[in-house]
Write a protein that binds this DNA or RNA. Structure first.
Length: 638
RNA sequence: GCCUCGGUGGCUUAGUGGCUAUAGCGGCGGACUUGUAAUCCGCAGGUCGGGGGUUCGACUCCCCUCCGAGGCUCCA
């Protein structure tokens, strides 16, 4: 028998008999590894575990810990679900069933809607198939054979016809056959822990003109514990839902009278104003000015900016004196009018103009969600007008500022760079220059980034920031976009050293993104327990009986004089009840006054973690609080 | 916009054709004057999202509408 050499990721090389299957190799490497194995990477190509090795190769065993492993595992789970559905509902026709970031789905064409009761049945059937531990086998067919096999399924037929390749792979597990590129786990017994999560409508090929199918979603893991942990995380996320907390903490509300137009209550407004104050201070330091531009502007402006032609379905309109006006969906055209009020000199560049601009966008009713997706929001916008040479430094400036903001709130973040798309405007040369300036700035800051080839806006390349909250979920917030188009459309110029007119380049950038959305993210990030500097109410004073009210009022006055946001609760309720209520309102500091405190001229301080500190002097408390507020710290200790 | 599910006092919620629609929290009134997560008693509060229909009778069934939740090409 001939021998072949297999090289592993750690550099080691082992000899095997030609024709050995990968699963056999894995078994030789260790029991644990062979049990965890899901698929393998053979010479950098993802393959099934029962693939036979016929020549010298590089081999890596893939487990659930690898992203590819998760994908294969969930993809196999989708097949498992499809098989169960097929067993229970033989008339169901299957479209596509891939793995996604959060699990997997299968699009199914079936006459009747699936119900939650069906979920239970399907899960039971899946369990059965897992217990049978059916082997999952790959077979290759010609296109003709495949078309014959799937002649009753219009979706698979369409997909097979679209395929350029003549060779088609199918996967078979028991009585179930699916057209699939693979790879898959070797048998259904691997798919131990799963749960169907939701059902939704989805169009065939995502096109609203096509038939709408039922999309069944599920999640799966190699063992029950991981599934349990995942479900727990979902539960935790649900507890933190900003819509729920927003109501409980009296921060904001939305009404039938204005879907997608949130109302901010006094406490929510406190936080928004703090976010704005912080923004103003930091931007002034970084050399920005601030402007205010109107909400409603004439049609001519939007025609010139291109919004009238390209963004119309997202805009709101109105008529004034019989003329067409639009409510601004973006701030830039307004800002540009300010730039154009007089001739600009190169000496003025870079010119950094910020604006807390409230924009209105007509989003589809179905996509609205709390503060995350609204129809009216305030962008912490700024536009920088500059020369090509200034790009790199200006980008570095924005990167520094953004980093400072996100760190302040305790967010980790990831950066992505999007490059020239097919429908781009502007010359290849200026794109090249702009993109390399963005890269140079990122490299100078030693920021790691992912490149999204061809995903830039048609008017310029961009950098996006994705925040990671404490549950590991990511949110796109900040963005830095270079723009060659607007300066062109509005014929922006500056006079150079040479006395000639030149075209400036523009940066559009936001850090919070939308203040409303950022507040939503903060609510979930902190689970409603805001750090002291952001807390709408920083302290509440409780008395023990009526004789302590006067002392409590004095204390309140002292705190309020030092700009501390303080409330009192002098109701004739029991202490435990008042403590409980303050705790549920997530007020960071509960201050209690009683006989002892009056006698010693002190106060008892309770923090949200339940620790109580007695004998604190009011002056010391104020000093401590101010220090914590100044540091914007989320920890409180005495 | 489209699909699935949902909408019952301020909030959470019981109630699948039959007396005057539950209960808890919250609110208000009263008693209690209380030492760090719920003291007791009483009262008020609902055109069951809105409109129409079926029926002797509708929160409950049907149709329309409004609002909300989750989704709507991450390649067989």
């Amino acid at each position: 028998m001939a021998k072949i050499k297999i090289k592993f990721p750690d550099g080691s090389v082992k000899e095997y008999e030609k024709g050995i299957s990968i699963i056999k190799v894995a078994e030789g490497l260790g029991k644990r590894l062979s049990e965890d194995a899901i698929a393998a990477k053979l010479n950098n190509e993802l393959v099934d575990l029962n693939t036979k090795l016929n020549k010298d190769s590089n081999l890596k065993i893939i487990t659930f810990k690898d992203d590819e492993g998760k994908e294969v595992f969930r993809h196999s789970s989708a097949h498992l679900m499809a098989q169960a559905v097929k067993n229970l509902f033989p008339k169901a026709k299957f479209a596509i069933g891939p793995a996604v970031e959060e699990g997997f789905y299968y699009d199914i064409d079936y006459e009747k809607s699936f119900t939650p009761e069906d979920f239970v049945k399907i899960e039971r059937e899946m369990d059965k198939i897992v217990k049978e531990n059916l082997s999952i086998e790959r077979t290759e067919l010609t296109k003709k054979e495949a078309l014959k096999l799937f002649k009753d399924n219009p979706y698979k037929t369409e997909l097979i016809k679209e395929l350029k390749d003549e060779k088609i792979s199918i996967y078979k597990q028991g009585n179930f056959i699916d057209f699939c590129r693979g790879p898959h786990v070797p048998s259904t017994g691997k798919l131990k822990a799963f749960k169907l999560t939701k059902i939704a409508g989805a169009y065939w090929k995502g096109d609203a003109k096509n038939k709408q199918l039922q999309r069944l979603y599920g999640i799966s893991f190699p063992d029950k514990k991981q599934l349990k942990d995942y479900l727990k995380l979902l539960e935790e996320a649900e507890k933190r839902d900003h819509r729920k907390l927003g109501k409980e903490l009296d921060l904001f509300s939305v009404h039938d009278e204005g879907p997608g137009f949130p109302f901010f209550h006094p406490k929510g407004t406190v936080i928004i104003n703090i976010l704005k104050d912080f923004w103003r201070k930091e931007h002034a330091k970084a050399g920005y000015t601030e402007v205010i531009t109107p909400i409603i502007l004439n049609r001519n402006l939007w025609e010139q900016s291109g919004h009238w032609d390209h963004y119309k379905e997202n805009m709101y309109f109105t008529k004034i004196d019989d003329q067409d006006y639009a409510i601004k969906p973006m701030n830039c055209p307004g800002g540009i009018l300010i730039y154009k009020t007089r001739l600009r000199s190169y000496r003025e560049l870079p010119m950094r103009m910020g604006e807390m601009g409230t924009v209105h966008r007509h989003e589809l009713s179905g996509v609205l969600a709390g503060l995350f997706r609204v129809r009216c929001f305030t962008q912490d916008d700024a536009h920088i007008y500059m020369t090509e040479e200034q790009i790199k430094n200006e980008i570095i400036g924005v990167l520094n500022l953004t980093d400072h903001f996100y760190k302040t709130f305790g967010f980790d973040y990831k950066v992505e760079l999007s490059t020239k798309p097919d429908n781009a405007m502007g010359s290849d040369e200026s794109w090249e220059k702009a993109t390399s300036s963005l890269k140079a700035a990122l490299d100078a800051k030693k920021i790691k980034y992912k490149i999204n080839e061809g995903e830039g806006a048609f008017y310029g390349p961009k950098i996006d920031f994705h925040l990671k909250d404490c549950l590991g979920r990511t949110w796109q917030c900040g963005t830095i976009q270079l723009d060659f188009a607007m300066p062109e459309k509005f014929n922006l110029t500056y006079e150079g050293k040479d006395g000639k007119k030149h075209r400036p380049i523009m940066i559009h950038r936001v850090i919070y993104g939308s203040i409303e959305r950022f507040l939503g993210i903060l609510i979930e990030h902190y689970a409603g327990k805001f750090p002291l500097w952001l807390s709408p109410v920083q302290a509440i004073i409780l008395n023990i009986n009526d004789s302590h009210i006067n002392y409590g009022e004095e204390l309140k006055k002292k705190l309020a004089e030092n700009n501390i946001r303080v409330e009192t609760d002098f109701r004739a309720e029991t202490m435990p009840k008042k403590v409980r209520e303050a705790q549920l309102k997530k007020i960071p500091l509960i201050l209690t006054v009683g006989d002892k405190e009056i006698k010693n001229k002190t106060v008892a301080v309770r923090t949200l973690d339940g620790k109580v500190y007695f004998n604190i002097k009011p002056e010391d408390l104020i000093k401590k609080m101010q220090e914590i507020i100044d540091r914007k710290s989320s920890e409180i200790k005495f």
